[in-house]
Write a protein that binds this DNA or RNA. Structure first.
Length: 546
RNA sequence: GCGCCCGUAGCUCAAUUGGAUAGAGCAACAGCCUUCUAAGCUGUGGGUUGAAGGUUCGAGUCCUUUCGGGCGCACCA
């Protein structure tokens, strides 16, 4: 397909040459105000100083010398203080439509990240209870990013790190055993700091009815270990089921215990020591992350000889690099904001490419119901579990809402709004546009057109504006990957939907002259493809009826 | 006290590496269904981008200070 930016770039450089102006880094951007055109360049501003002339005069000179392909650019002009604005030719926009029909859903895909091997880690919630809504946001963002990177040609794996060893597993086993023994009729208190959730009660009841007293007959230590592992397996399975329902599959569920089997944490510690980056203080072992840009040093081994979570984490990230990934992305909750600095420091100490580790700190989720904050209290019986949230609002609405804001911004999730089938709900607004298109084909009893249809009759402003929007998807995907945030897709989807609804009201499809009807049907089909693809990148379905 | 994030219309939010007159939706008001789904469309009003400096031809965007809000500050994970 014709590439306007490349064409414009070449033309401007040629004009600079003709005018004996110095070559500069010519950039193009989309003007904020559509009345300024489709593409603009600020090249005159860059040259103003060098050429000692007013930007506007330089722009006029360049503009005059431009030789442009009229099937791509229909007009150009100098505006403002020195911008040169360009307007796409209808022929080019029609070509965009034809391109979409020819390529189908993959029209916006690229290979610009071909060769990249990315490991994306997200959710990684401790398997000590059900998934909550913060994990749900991480799941939506992470899986959308996975789809986006795939569309750009990268090889990307998603991974869930299962914390199946260490203190909290022991504590989980103890809490579980206490419930179990109590249920059996030998009351034991849950240990201090233990897990109190009701879900553990249910688990204990279930265990008694299925396995009777077998854990009672073991030694307490053995029972604690067995029950701890059992609880973890149950929760891991539960998380997997919930996430699959959320359309979030993982390439791998990586167990922390795998690292311990290979003695990876000790190996990492040895390497850190060898690098001269650790020291002892008050019996504890510290890592000198401060020397590598962090603002404090962190303990990797406590004075009673246990590793802190930081050390296995380091070993885990070493392991990721060793598996051949050249880019790591971690999505973590807001309470982990110290992680990027300290893990970055650890990677640098180990001479690993710290700049290839990208950490997304996802801000919190405020759950609302009709504008009122839902207390995150399990006792109150309010929704806090991801599973319940999905049951109440549905997968489509949940996935869309969780990526509606930038990852750096706290997210208000209004349950009633997500459920409402009203004009306020952006999910339905977008899905409605898709369904309306399907309805046109149903009503006309027509098969969707293919790329052989002539789009030349498309001249109406609303038709061309719709094609302009469809053209943007590759850039939107590229941008989402670059900033590692899917939220830009939601903005684009809403704009495409809005433009389609506008087109729908201004331009009739069925019953027009045959050539125009065919062209408009083709435009509808292209829009449908684009909407479905955009939604699919967010894991949201596009149905033919509402 | 230290660290991270945020502050844009009454409300919820956009604004791509700094670009032109800061845009949508909701809410308010006025219109559009015998014609492809009104879950839609058209129009009107609404702003000192928290504040003050600085850099720049140009700042919502970058820097400094400051005010306000959220979260986190363990030899827990």
């Amino acid at each position: 397909m014709k590439e306007p930016i490349q064409h414009l770039h070449d033309s401007v450089l040629q004009a600079l040459k003709t005018l004996a102006l110095p070559e500069v880094d010519v950039r193009f951007e989309k003007p904020k105000d559509p009345s300024h055109g489709d593409i603009a360049t600020n090249v005159a501003f860059l040259l103003a100083k060098l050429a000692r002339k007013a930007p506007r005069d330089i722009a006029a000179l360049i503009s005059e010398k431009l030789s442009l392909d009229s099937t791509i650019i229909s007009s150009h002009s100098v505006a403002g203080a020195g911008f040169i604005n360009f307007v796409f030719a209808p022929a080019y926009l029609q070509e965009v439509g034809r391109w979409i029909l020819e390529k189908g859903a993959a029209y916006a895909d690229s290979q610009d990240l071909a060769g990249e091997r990315i490991l994306l880690e997200f959710v990684s919630a401790n398997p000590s209870g059900p998934l909550n809504v913060v994990s749900a946001r991480a799941a939506a963002v992470g899986d959308s990013l996975r789809r986006i990177f795939e569309a750009r040609g990268a090889h990307i794996d998603s991974e869930y790190y299962v914390n199946d060893s260490g203190n909290q597993v022991r504590l989980l086993g103890e809490s579980y055993r206490a419930r179990y023994e109590t249920e059996l009729g030998y009351p034991i208190d849950v240990p201090a700091g233990g897990y109190l959730g009701r879900y553990l009660d249910d688990l204990a009841i279930d265990t008694v009815s299925r396995e009777r007293s077998i854990y009672h007959e073991m030694s307490p230590d053995k029972a604690i270990e067995k029950l701890g592992q059992k609880a973890i397996e149950i929760y891991v399975q539960q998380h997997r089921t919930t996430l699959e329902k959320f359309r979030v599959p993982f390439s791998r569920w990586f167990r922390e215990s795998e690292l311990h089997d290979e003695n990876a944490s000790q190996a990492a510690l040895d390497r850190l020591e060898k690098a001269g980056a650790v020291y002892q203080e008050d019996g504890a072992t510290y890592l000198r992350t401060e020397d590598y840009g962090d603002n404090k040093n962190w303990v990797v081994k406590t004075s009673d000889g246990r590793w802190t979570y930081f050390l296995p984490d380091i070993a885990y990230h070493v392991n990721k690099f060793e598996r051949g990934y050249n880019r790591l992305i971690d999505i973590l909750g807001p309470d982990h904001h110290t992680f990027p600095l300290k893990m970055g420091a650890a990677m640098r100490i180990l001479k690993l490419p710290a700049d290839k580790l990208h950490v997304i700190i996802l801000q919190q989720v405020n759950l609302l119901r009709d504008g009122v904050t839902v207390k995150m209290s399990k006792r109150a019986g309010e929704i806090v579990e991801m599973k319940e949230l999905l049951d109440e609002v549905g997968v489509d609405a949940a996935r869309f809402f969780f990526v509606l804001r930038r990852t750096t911004t706290p997210l208000d999730f209004d349950i009633e709004l997500a459920k409402s089938h009203s004009e306020e709900n952006p999910v339905y607004y977008v899905q409605y546009a898709h369904a309306r298109i399907a309805s046109i084909f149903r009503k006309g009893q027509l098969e969707p057109p293919d790329a052989s249809v002539s789009l030349e009759p498309l001249k109406h402003t609303e038709e061309l504006n719709l094609l302009r929007r469809l053209r943007e998807l590759p850039e939107v995907i590229e941008e989402a990957g670059r900033v590692m945030d899917p939220h830009g897709l939601t903005t684009w989807l809403r704009e495409v939907a809005a433009q389609f609804h506008r087109f729908y009201h201004h331009c009739r499809v069925l019953g027009e002259q045959p050539d125009l009807q065919s062209a408009r049907l083709a435009l509808c089909r292209a829009t449908q493809i684009a909407l479905a693809r955009g939604l699919d990148l967010l894991g949201v379905s596009a149905s033919d009826t509402m």
